[in-house]
Design a protein around this nucleic acid. Structure first.
Length: 421
RNA sequence: GUGGGUGUAGCUCAGCUGGCAGAGCACCGGGUUGUGGUCCCGGGUGUCGUGGGUUCGAGUCCCAUCACUCACCCCA
């Protein structure tokens, strides 16, 4: 049986011309970090499985059922990264970046992988823009990081989103709250799997959207009401800074994130136009992660923004993002001799910084002109045998249709001048 | 892992109670042996997802299977 091979399940592909929007989104989301003192870090796409188990947390769905794991030829268990933070923190510790000036501010972008059932906006290979600031617990750093994401969305022209913000407390106040919440949850009528979650990770139960569960949670104790004095002060200060920066948010006391390492400031960006998967980005503080992974006990904060989802959000808002890959000049050869010259002419234009393309193969004049039209070029350069014999080329303005002969020696200069005017 | 929907041309899709595989767009050629975008003429580019069954006859009905898709859980 000879079947054609299709892409693996649940992976998005971006083809031209639509792929130009993908690049533009990634660019816009990372621009604020690039202009705010964050250095680029490139970490591997796969890591030791143990890193994610320890870093992200055994009790999370991401680790317990969504990891793309495999054994390599040396018998090591490796996993395609489901998120960036664990790998970045590992790299910071491994290379001693935390021994220099703090905070260490880093950004990155690329694919992450989760073995999930795909649906609208949820892919097995997802693209994120990621930012981390490690080694600082100044509330101003929290605000800066949140602002970087806000600025990214604003730079995209995205409007239909909301910032949900809360504090998840720290090791001095969360255990007591967790106990309180468990006592409340144990009294409810829940299915077996949810009961198990009450014991392992009770905060995540708060996030359940099923009406029969959500209905029982209206009187549940909420973390922001049980913060210790230190967390309370920190959270207040973060909110003051955000107000200073003109960032508005909505208090989300039931906000829970899917990864275990979050503490204190936690946030998520949601957009209404995406279908069931409404989160377009999220992050928070992870004050215990460095120590958990064997580093010095430094706090950190970061976020991941979904590039695929931001793109869907833009489409939902019917916002047109730039189209790319267009050229300014299209060279049309006529005849064998001209065909050889066409590549040279196009290359000279390219060397001079003019985006140029040309007709290849045995296309007739009509077909080549059609290609010129579709290329989006401002003008076509027609190179015929007769023209070459006279030492000229015909330059045709594709919008007005006017055409004039230009000496070949002046061609590049003339076209540059025409395009710049 | 659980539930629903859909598989027909490159794309979007039509195809009735079973009777010669279709439309629009795209693409290619010509009208114009040296001129695109408009117009006119011509061209179907197909394993009707796959395998089996019922039938004189299956895109259509039945069974299985695969793929895609939406939703749940969960998440970017």
């Amino acid at each position: 049986m000879n079947r054609t091979i299709a892409a693996p399940k649940g992976v998005p592909e971006y083809l031209p011309p639509a792929s130009a929007a993908f690049i533009a989104v990634r660019e816009a989301l990372s621009r604020p970090a690039r202009h705010s003192g964050y250095g680029y870090i490139e970490t591997p796409i796969f890591e030791e499985t143990a890193l994610f188990a320890r870093g992200v947390g055994e009790s999370t769905d991401v680790v317990s059922k969504e990891m793309y794991s495999f054994t390599d030829r040396g018998g090591r268990s490796l996993t395609l990264r489901p998120e960036f933070t664990a790998g970045i923190v590992r790299a910071v510790i491994e290379h001693g970046l935390d021994r220099g000036q703090l905070p260490v501010k880093l950004w990155t972008q690329g694919p992450c992988f989760r073995y999930e059932r795909p649906q609208a906006g949820r892919y097995r290979q997802l693209q994120q823009v990621n930012v981390e600031a490690i080694g600082g617990d100044d509330p101003a750093l929290d605000a800066e990081v949140v602002w970087l994401a806000v600025a990214g969305y604003r730079g995209l022209g995205l409007t239909g989103w909301r910032l949900d913000l809360t504090s998840l407390g720290d090791r001095s106040c969360r255990p007591a709250y967790r106990e309180l919440l468990q006592q409340f949850l144990r009294k409810l009528d829940l299915d077996e799997e949810t009961r198990r979650r009450v014991e392992i990770n009770p905060l995540r139960v708060l996030d359940d959207k099923r009406p029969e569960v959500a209905g029982q949670l209206v009187d549940a104790p909420l973390m922001p009401d049980h913060l210790c004095a230190g967390c309370e002060r920190h959270f207040d200060a973060v909110r003051e800074h955000l107000t200073d920066l003109g960032v508005s948010w909505s208090d989300a006391p039931r906000l829970v994130r899917g990864l275990d390492y979050y503490t204190r400031t936690t946030f998520e960006f949601v957009h209404a136009g995406l279908g069931a998967q409404s989160g377009i980005g999220g992050g928070g503080r992870y004050d215990g992660l460095m120590a958990d992974l064997g580093g010095q006990p430094l706090s950190g904060i970061g976020f991941g923004l979904g590039v695929d989802r931001a793109l869907l959000a833009l489409e939902a808002e019917e916002r047109v993002v730039v189209s790319g890959g267009r050229v300014s000049v299209y060279v049309v050869p006529l005849g064998e001799e001209a065909r050889r010259r066409a590549l040279v002419v196009a290359t000279e234009l390219r060397r001079a910084g003019v985006a140029a393309d040309l007709a290849f193969g045995g296309k007739g004049l009509k077909g080549a002109m059609k290609a010129a039209d579709r290329s989006g070029a401002v003008c076509a350069v027609i190179l015929g045998e007769r023209d070459i014999a006279e030492g000229v080329a015909q330059c045709k303005d594709l919008q007005s249709g006017t055409q004039r002969a230009v000496p070949l020696v002046d061609l590049v200069r003339t076209l540059k001048e025409t395009l710049e005017s």
